[in-house]
Design a binder for these strands. Structure first.
Lengths: 120, 120
DNA sequence: TGGTTATTTGGCAATATAGCCAAATATGTT
DNA sequence: AACATATTTGGCTATATTGCCAAATAACCA
């Protein structure tokens, strides 16, 4: 691994680190549906204003969002369009794993369901 | 945000956290080209065996890779197929941002390139 | 059996990250 | 100007993540 490769990897890691926090991931998912102002996240997440503001700064520094001040409010929107589909793919994979795990713990539940489906 | 939403977001965060480290991202990118054994990463990254092993454990616990012991070696391979294309998309975005930034710092370099292209 | 190689695990110190409070800034209102 | 609202910044403590070392396992070889 050379210097340049390492540099590129680290740059990508900044983006991934930015995504790797529940509050920030939530913010990104919300922004996938359109721009929002800071106060909307404060209400939804029920965290301190300063906490949300810092999370947004992390996202901005990583290049994931851009902001836009209008009046006294600051609006944020997504800047990297490939994010939503990827996050969705992770969600699908995670859900599949969870199903698998549940089946191992309590197979009967799934047998019952299978039988019910067969009767339809 | 309700309990179930929060739970799903946290599950996705586990995956993203797993990706958000230079060594682990490197490992994932290598595995995109096929399975590899632990020792190959140790050589390439030049870190302690135990360090690599722990990174691999993080990836495994997050469901990103699976392993397979053959003889005295353990081989790892990718389990989540949507990763490579997403990582690629991040790479493209990151590179574009870097170009943009370089251009702001030293526009002349890019003027010269532009002129050279025009002469072709 | 004893030794060698490949890998994992436990433990610990250094570093990074998160979240809260208080204070600063910026915009709009009276 | 004085005040209210929206947001950011600075600072601090609590918590989580890294990476190394040493020791434990596990498979293979002599």
């Amino acid at each position: 691994m050379n210097q340049q490769q390492r540099h590129l990897i680290e740059a990508k890691t900044v983006v991934l680190k930015a995504l790797a926090h529940p509050t920030r991931l939530y913010i990104i998912e919300e922004l996938a549906q359109g721009e929002k102002c800071v106060c909307e996240f404060v209400d939804a997440v029920k965290a301190d204003f300063s906490t949300i503001s810092k999370h947004l700064l992390v996202l901005k520094n990583a290049g994931l969002v851009e902001d836009d001040k209008r009046g006294q409010q600051v609006f944020y929107r997504l800047r990297m369009r490939c994010l939503p589909s990827f996050i969705n793919c992770i969600g699908v994979a995670v859900a599949a794993d969870a199903r698998m795990k549940a089946m191992q713990i309590n197979p009967d539940l799934f047998e019952a369901k299978k039988a019910a489906e067969a009767n339809e």
